[in-house]
Design a binder for these strands. Structure first.
Length: 522
RNA sequence: GGGGGUGUAGCUCAGUGGUAGAGCACCUGCCUUUUAAGCAGGGAGUCGAAGGUUCGAUCCCUUCCACCCUCACCA
């Protein structure tokens, strides 16, 4: 414990962590810099080049001894007597700085010596190559742009602790370049899809996130409250019902990039807040949508990688061949030899149990039984892109009945690498049928199914005005990004995944700073 | 919710029933084209939290917290 800490222990708890000492040292450096007339947090810096540009134009800039001004974070620092080398990094690239006492003068040299890894600086000088062949900026003057108080993670070992990486994503991004790259890819994927949809005449729209009634998916919602209206509101779990209202209204192609919220378990594939894209296409059916979606994915992969092969979790996924198309009951028959097509509820339940479906599954009807068998016997094997089509009507309350068999629906889900990558229907537009499905769902709610959908009067009203035949599709953006960036956890494609609050153990940095602030005032 | 694992310095990690170590980072000194710079010296820890056993716990026991894996539930 230092003298300083013993003297100023006025807080309820004395902070004597090594981290606090490291921060104090950096505060003292700020004082020394201020004494030299340096502002630790100035307002701006005029750059002439991004660091990547200094690399691209290096030969010309070096030959002409052009003065360049760069800015970024100091990632490494090596003092060699009367010269200091430092690695400067901006968003685009990294370049070495060479600060020599003869070039900048004694004062600027000593001040640079006070800098730490993590500090943000601007530097002016000319470019050259060192004896060891490294491109370098020979600094003639420099400015401190922001003093870093908290030490960076280890310069070699990096930051690997998952909890810290998620809770302090900024530290993760500073230290792990591949993480920055993953999120850039995320943005690119969304851009590619957006451009594709726009190019095909789909209108990007926005619909309510706060809704008086939730629907459009099977999930438990988040509930909140509006004070002025004094009414309960739900965070949306899907966009479906609002986008279909827009189709009723006369738009023929609409889509939305939607943040959805589902109040359910969290794991590697689920975050309570996630992103989907939903699109609705009037006068088309689910076959049209399947072809369109297949083309969109193929285009996205090509635009992103230049080819059609994607590696995920050690496997190669090929987007070039036409995606397989299997019906749900057909794929079960292929895998087990059992044909569920014409079974009654009781027959289907018995068959499901015989095929090893777990006791705990709620096999309340034929549809649930088929789904359970399918999940057990077929789903895990769907590595290459495969459409699974024509789900039982019981598990598809918003899909139109199959034109050839009313026990099933015109619906498909796409599976890639064992993951669902989209869900689409020929949308149910018969208001009477839709009403009956809602009433069916109502019974399920009464039986304790917390994920069944409540009756939406206004949606039925909209359908009563008449909705053209329409195909609709929804797919999870996070899952698509996982697939295309070879990430196995949704948390690695969300900047700030949901985490539980920690109350014990670590002392918040703000508390350390508060005590230092208090000490400095004395 | 069940099972398994992890939690020690700012970071990455060793370790022990007798109040703790390494590398990086940090501090001091030397070094004017170095580069995981080097050399010499030094400082730094509520060993996740709370109880218990014990003469003595970071270690053993109990409970709790967070994170990871896995099964279940769930899209």
């Amino acid at each position: 414990m230092t003298e300083r800490e013993q003297t100023h222990g006025t807080n309820d708890q004395e902070i004597h962590l090594p981290l606090a000492d490291l921060i104090r040292i950096r505060r003292q450096k700020i004082d020394q810099l201020k004494a030299q007339g340096i502002t630790p947090y100035p307002y701006k810096y005029e750059r002439t080049h991004a660091i990547s540009e200094s690399h691209e134009q290096f030969d010309a800039l070096a030959a002409e001894e052009k003065v360049v001004r760069l800015a970024g974070r100091i990632m490494l620092k090596r003092k060699m007597g009367k010269a200091i080398f430092a690695d400067l990094r901006d968003v685009s690239a990294k370049l070495q700085l060479y600060v020599k006492i003869d070039n900048v003068g004694q004062a600027a040299f000593d001040n640079f010596d006070l800098l730490d890894m993590g500090d943000i600086v601007g530097a002016e000088g000319t470019l050259f190559i060192t004896r060891t062949g490294e491109r370098t900026l020979k600094v003639t003057s420099w400015e401190l742009l922001s003093k870093s108080l908290h030490p960076l993670p280890d310069k070699h070992a990096g930051l690997t602790d998952l909890e810290t990486r998620y809770r302090r994503r900024y530290a993760d991004l500073i230290i792990n370049p591949e993480v920055r790259e993953t999120f850039v890819k995320r943005t690119k994927i969304i851009q590619i899809v957006r451009e594709f949809l726009n190019a095909h005449g789909f209108l990007e729209v926005e619909t309510p996130i706060l809704q008086p009634l939730y629907g459009g998916a099977m999930a438990r919602p988040f509930k909140t409250h509006h004070n002025a209206l004094d009414i309960p509101l739900f965070m949306r779990i899907a966009d479906e019902l609002y986008l279909k209202r827009l189709i009723v209204g006369g738009y023929e192609k609409v889509w939305e990039f939607c943040k959805d919220f589902r109040n359910e378990g969290m794991d590697r594939k689920h975050n309570p807040e996630f992103s989907m894209i939903e699109l609705y296409w009037a006068y088309a059916d689910y076959h049209d949508m399947a072809a369109f979606y297949e083309e969109m994915l193929r285009h996205t992969v090509k635009a992103l990688f230049g080819g059609y092969k994607v590696n995920y979790d050690g496997r190669e996924i090929d987007f070039e061949p036409k995606f397989r198309w299997l019906t749900m009951v057909g794929s079960i028959k292929d895998a087990t030899g059992v044909d569920f097509t014409s079974m009654t509820d009781d027959e289907a339940k018995a068959a499901a149990k015989k095929l090893g479906v777990h006791e705990s599954e709620k096999l309340i009807n034929r549809g649930k039984a088929i789904e359970a068998v399918w999940e057990l016997k077929v789903e895990p094997n769907l590595i290459q892109p495969t459409f699974i089509a024509d789900h039982p009507v019981e598990i598809s309350p918003l899909a139109k009945r199959h034109r050839e068999d009313p026990r099933f629906t015109e619906r498909f889900e796409l599976f890639i690498a064992g993951q669902e990558m989209g869900n689409a229907f020929s949308e149910l537009n018969d208001p009477m049928d839709q009403l009956e499905r809602f009433m069916q769902q109502g019974k399920a709610i009464e039986q304790g199914d917390e994920e069944a959908q409540p009756l939406d009067d206004d949606f039925i009203t909209a359908l009563a005005y008449g909705m053209p035949p329409t195909a609709g599709l929804g797919f999870g953006i996070d899952r698509l990004v996982m697939l295309l960036t070879d990430q196995q956890s949704i948390r690695d494609v969300l900047f700030f995944p949901q985490m539980k609050e920690t109350k014990e153990g670590t002392v918040p940095v703000s508390k350390i700073l508060a005590q230092i602030l208090e000490d400095e005032k004395k």
